[in-house]
């Protein structure tokens, strides 16, 4: 038996696993089947997929919001000795995500539920007073500004974004913070509240682990493994911290504020925060 026949047989048996007839499977893998409808079930592609594209784009590293310039306090924690290996990195990442869930998710949630300029301005003002650590505050402001610039350019179908952009130019300029703006953007795009909050935590984890590989605390493979492991923990955090009102917004990891607040004092540093 030739190699070609071998691989065709394998492909046919794989296709058979999908409950296709052997004849149909043979046609499919040899390229003779043009009617794809026999192997698709569930809703039509067009309806189910468009929202995924939007969500994925928001989370894509191609979407220029500058998240990778920030380490969420990891750089100071690493140089300070709080994080030194993979185990302490995992602890730090989980603690930081919990902190971010406790503090920021109520803002993502509120923004998602009330995606208009008036609420956004109010949320922005409150979060500004809640971010008492200037390094985290600056990180939130630079990412928020980049997100507003990108979003108002990309999602031109929403005039609200233009209106918000104008607010950031006005004489009493409002510099946008990341969490409420992300919530508002998801609200406008029709991304549901839980997905918006899950996405926010996903970005946090992604940015911490990306920083960890660039700080050489861990390698890219190990980081990907950690990302997979922590995803389960994050889902538990989400069940506890999602959909909460603003008055329940608090930080849970005071050490990260203590360390991150000293970021500017590092003699040499790679990240903005």
């Amino acid at each position: 038996m030739t190699t070609e026949q071998n691989s065709t047989n394998a492909a046919v048996s794989r296709a058979e696993d999908h409950n296709l007839s052997r004849e149909c499977a043979l046609k499919l893998v040899t390229g003779f089947l043009t009617d794809v409808s026999v192997i698709t079930d569930g809703p039509p592609i067009v309806q189910s997929g468009s929202m995924d594209w939007t969500t994925w784009q928001l989370l894509d590293s191609l979407f220029p919001t500058g998240g990778f310039a920030h380490s969420y306090g990891l750089e100071t924690a690493y140089q300070g000795g709080l994080v030194s290996d993979c185990a302490s990195l995992e602890r730090f990442a989980v603690n930081s995500l919990q902190n971010s869930a406790g503090l920021s998710l109520p803002f993502v949630f509120a923004g998602n539920k009330f995606p208009n300029t008036e609420c956004w301005l109010e949320l922005n003002k409150i979060l500004h007073a809640m971010l008492t650590n200037h390094v985290a505050r600056k990180a939130s402001l630079t990412q928020g500004s980049a997100l507003l610039r990108t979003a108002s350019t990309v999602f031109t179908e929403f005039p609200e974004l233009k209106k918000m952009r104008a607010c950031s130019y006005a004489p009493t300029a409002t510099t946008p913070h990341h969490a409420p703006l992300f919530g508002v953007l998801c609200g406008l795009l029709g991304v549901d509240a839980v997905t918006a909050q899950r996405s926010y935590l996903f970005m946090g984890l992604r940015d911490i682990l990306s920083a960890a590989t660039r700080l050489n605390i861990t390698g890219p493979l190990e980081a990907a493994k950690l990302q997979h492991q922590i995803a389960g923990v994050t889902e538990t955090l989400l069940t506890r911290y999602a959909n909460r009102p603003l008055q329940d917004s608090y930080s849970t990891f005071p050490l990260v504020d203590t360390f991150q607040g000293a970021h500017d004092q590092l003699f040499s540093r790679m990240f903005c925060s």
């Binding site: 000795g81 709080l82 030194s84 008492t132 200037h134 390094v135 203590t258 360390f259 607040g261 000293a262």
Partner: peptide, 12 residues
């Protein structure tokens, strides 16, 4: 072993 400083303070 990870050895963090015995004392740390920062300000904003």
């Amino acid at each position: 072993n990870p050895s963090a400083p015995a004392f740390l303070a920062s300000c904003s």
